[in-house]
Amino acid sequence: MIVDDDDHVRTFLIVLLRKIVSGNILEARNGEEAIANYRRERPDLILLDVNMPVMDGLETLGRLREINPDVVVIMITSLAMRKIVEDAVRAGAANFIRKDTPKPQVIEIIRETIVTCFPKYQEFGSEAGTP
């Protein structure tokens, strides 16, 4: 699931995710929508924007972890302030991506997170498997 209030960012991330994962990709425009979607669909992986209206990313992460402590969330942001990154680590985010990171590196970070968090996709690290 991709959670971001910016339509263009969501579209960009969907295109990127399609290169490395198969299956349905859900979208949400804010934290509340993300939580509703999560309760309904239980997606394996969530890309979650930090700055959003209604409910910000860190609060959403906390709420998602209340529902499922093992939820796998990669935070995304335009401005990575040290405190926010450290708060995300403490809140249990699996990874963190700056939006200005080059595409190949974003793909690599997502791939690495999948391999680390889902042992069944170990072969995915060698690009052999697709979750």
């Binding site: 401005l79 990575a80 302030m81 040290r82 405190k83 990154v85 450290e86 990874n95 700056r98």
Partner: peptide, 16 residues
């Protein structure tokens, strides 16, 4: 100011 320091992807990867 330290808390507001903007960090790059390399530093983020290191923290994680």
């Amino acid at each position: 100011f330290f808390a507001k320091e903007i960090i790059d992807q390399v530093e983020i990867n290191k923290i994680f």
